[in-house]
Every structure is written in structure tokens, then in C-alpha cells.
Nucleic acid binder design. Structure first.
Lengths: 247, 247
DNA sequence: CGTCGGCTTGATACGGCTCAATAGGAGTGG
DNA sequence: CCACTCCTATTGAGCCGTATCAAGCCGACG
């Protein structure tokens, strides 16, 4: 709740071509199923905020929970820490994705939302959203669906990762990332640009940076990926490298 | 959806004395804040099912998602498996707790709900519950709260556990279990009766049964717990053994 | 009685952690 | 422009904890 200029914005900004079926997180924005007048009701309660710059927070631990946010552009990491100070990174979120819903039903946020790139968000005051939900069953259904999906997403990624070795754990992460923000380079290589540091990835995967670095080196040796500074290319055919993880 | 005889039941069956504040899972049943007529609306859509016996399933992977369930008595483990067959146990749930909400917003369940004890549940058809939510903002709020809480609970337990050694990971689990179904023995010892096997606990904690067994032996040697067959006693004072984990 | 599943114990191997050193890049200031 | 610092990333050597493989114990149950 630090930054932000006033203003209104539509919620359907990020309208990419990828199909939503295969995505592990909702790409579709809130309210896509609603008609025009209902959609206007939502537009009336939201407020665009930004730009947040790298390192700034959209919300912080102990801030009172009042809103959820749809990221319009940029990228955000959700982090907290254990009692002993061990940092935890719960996830990374990008354009069209939702942050803050982990706090639904609580009085305060339990995580920091730290911006990685210059980021714009739309703020949705949750009490007003709840009121709208009462009036619009479709919207209510959508919010319940979003919460359920997030529940499954965190469950799957975290639980599953626990049983994998460092390199396969990274591949699982990379696959998810590729589906959410992967692109094809001019020469036809599947590629992911990393907005976060490798150290952040390591923390998120429950590894030491050294271990992740070694895993990356190993995967590159095996010809599965190409490990540039902030870009990972996915080599090898799907069958051998990633499809085993495409649940 | 295997078993079950018809019938109606109230939702407020399990009414224990413990305060709900400190609990990591909702002990309060659905509808506690509602007045009598509203409460009746819920009573009209629920159906008591049981008894399920050990090994039976309340719902199975790929079953169409239609209902969530409040456990009235007994205990249930929620499990699935990875592609390679590695078993996963997402959690254990007991009287007054809710299962099936991980599937909200999906067309089918992704887990099996396997009964450990003889178990009775109340089935809540979710479409009807959603309709009621549209009419009763308090109920809608409660459901959203439950989903949010479950999201935080799974996040906390799993993420946190990842950074702990086998013995501390077990202590975290034991602490949670004690808060949810612990009791004090006649001679004043804090105690937890385990409805699940140690093997199940190991899987849930992401350990091998051998490793868990060694961790238990170690904790008993240190005087932190007493490890009986199906009963764990918590020795030592809170400060040294568990309070460090009481987040 | 014998069998089987749950649980425990032992010996060994391996993967990731720890500590330590080095290299590269971005940003800063002279 | 270079010198300097800070941060990120990598690599090496050794250690520790958990997995693995194997065997034995115990209680439940036919």
C-alpha cells in the first residue's frame, strides 16, 4: 500500500492468445463471463496503482488486508520468513495474475509482495468485491473458482517438488514458468526470461543457490537447457526433458 | 461417493471447548454465525452419510466434484500420487473439519479421501451451497474465509516443513495434531492418539518410514516425546520442545 | 500355528548443505 | 575512462542427513 496514483482501468487488459486450459494459474481476468452492466460494476470499484519499481512492495506483512490485486504488467514475488529469519518465497506472479488472495478471510497480509520489474496493478477492495458477489452469482462463482485453483496450484507445486531432485525440481518450475510467460525466439527456441534472480528461484525451490547453480550446470551439460544470465532456453525434445512433468 | 445412508443432521455437532483462535484449521462449523431460519436453510441441503469404515473412500480421484463434506466423527486422509506412483498424503482431517474444498472450482476431485476410522460426514452439495451463499452474505463470507484459511494452512505446513530436519518436521506435525485432537491423560501428560499409521505420517512429511522411525527414536532418547504404538506423549516443557514451533 | 503388515534397526551410498574462493556485471564516483 | 564496490553467479572440497537396501521384531489375525 505504498505507492500508486489514482485512476480507473479495465480488468481485461492482458488478453493474450494462449489457451487457458493448460495453464496452472488463471490467465483469464476477473469478470470475463459477465455482461456489460455487470462488468461496469466491477470497473467502478477498482483502482489502478503504479508504477511500482523493483524492490517496492505492493503490500507488506501485517498490513491490514483490504484488497486483492490483479497484476497488469510487471512481476511480483510473494515472500515471508520463518522465525529464525530463513527467507521463504511462496511464488512469483506476472501480468493477468492475482495476488493477495492468500489473505482472504484474514485481517492482515502474512506475506510481502515485492516488485521485481516495474509493475502496474489493479486494486480490488475485497469488501466491495464481496458485496458485488452477493449480487452477482457468476462473479461469486468465479472468485470461489479462483481460490480453489490457487489452492490446487500451491498444493501441486510445493508437494510435488518435495519429492524431486534439485534438477527435476527446477524443470518443474521452468515448465510452469514457460507455460505462463514463455516465448519462442526468432530462431524457434523455446525460451523463458527470468525477472527474478537465481537466488530467488533457489529459495522458492527450497534449495541453496549453490545447489541450484550446480543443477543448472548439469542440465546444460545434458543438453536439456541453455543457461544464460537471465534467459533459459529449453532444448531437447519434450519427451525427454519436460513432458514427464506436464501433469 | 461409495457409501452412505440418507438422513439429516445439524452441522454444529462437534462443539468442543478449545478456543478457535489458536487452531490452524477451522474448528467452527459452517453457519455458526447465522440465525435460526438461515441455519435451517443449510440444514435443508445437507445429508448425513455413513458409517464409512477404515479403507473406504468418501470421494475418489476423477469423481465429479459435487459436494464438500464436514467430518462429524472419525478421521480421513487425503491422498493422491505422482505420475511414477509415488504416494502423496496431503493431509489428515478429523471431526468438525472440512474436506473436498480443494476441488472447489474444478469439475472433479484430484484426491482420494480415505477413511482411517469409522467415520460419519455431512455432505454439502456445492451448487446448492453456492446458491445459499448468494442469498446470505454472511455465509458467503464464511466460505471465502474457509478457503483462505485452508490456503494458508497448507502453505504454512508444507513450505515450512521443507526447511526442517526430520525430527523438527515431525514436531511441527505433532504440534498441529495436538492442537487439533490432543488430550490430557489422567496423569496430566499431553498426549495425541494417532488414527493413521506411522508410514502414512512419513509420507505426509515427505520422509521414508525408516527416517521417521529414527527421528522418533531420537526424540524419545532426548526426552521430548514418548513413542508408543499409536500414542505419542509430549514430554519436556513447552519452551524446549514445541514452543519454538508454535508460530 | 504360520503369515502378513507395520515398525524398528543396521550399514552404506548419495544428494544437497556448508564454508570458502573466484569470476562477472551493474552501478558509482573520481 | 578507469577504479572501486556490491551483488549475483559459479565452482571446489568436505560434511551431514536422509534414502536405500537388507534384516529382524512384534502384534494382529486367519
Amino acid at each position: 500500500m505504498t505507492n500508486g496514483t489514482g485512476g480507473k482501468c479495465g480488468l481485461h487488459l492482458v488478453n493474450n492468445q494462449r489457451d487457458c486450459q493448460s495453464c496452472t494459474l488463471p490467465r483469464k481476468c476477473i469478470g470475463a463471463d459477465l455482461d456489460q452492466s455487470q462488468s461496469n460494476n466491477i470497473t467502478n470499484i477498482i483502482r489502478k496503482r503504479g508504477p511500482f519499481k523493483a524492490g517496492e512492495t505492493i503490500f507488506k506483512i501485517e498490513d491490514p488486508f483490504r484488497s486483492i490485486f490483479v497484476i497488469q504488467s510487471g512481476s511480483v514475488k510473494i515472500e515471508s520468513s520463518l522465525d529464525d529469519g530463513t527467507p521463504l518465497i511462496h511464488g512469483f506472479y506476472f501480468g493477468s495474475e492475482l495476488i493477495g488472495i492468500e489473505a482472504v478471510g484474514d485481517v492482515k497480509y502474512q506475506c510481502d509482495a515485492v516488485v521485481l520489474d516495474t509493475t502496474w496493478v489493479c486494486e480490488l477492495p475485497f469488501d466491495k468485491l464481496e458485496t458485488l458477489c452477493s449480487q452477482m452469482p457468476l462473479l461469486q462463482h468465479e472468485i470461489l473458482e479462483l481460490l480453489g485453483k490457487r489452492l490446487r496450484y500451491t498444493n501441486r507445486t510445493i508437494v510435488q517438488g518435495r519429492y524431486l531432485s534439485a534438477d527435476r525440481r527446477f524443470l518443474l518450475f521452468l515448465n510452469d514458468l514457460y507455460q505462463r510467460r514463455g516465448c519462442i525466439t526468432k530462431d524457434g527456441k523455446r525460451s523463458v526470461l527470468l525477472p527474478m534472480t537465481k537466488g530467488d528461484i533457489a529459495i522458492h525451490l527450497g534449495l541453496r543457490p549453490e545447489s541450484l547453480s550446480r543443477a543448472l550446470a548439469k542440465l546444460q551439460d545434458e543438453g536439456v537447457i541453455r543457461n544464460h544470465a537471465r534467459e533459459i532456453q529449453i532444448l531437447g525434445d519434450k519427451r525427454t526433458s519436460l513432458s514427464c512433468l506436464w501433469v
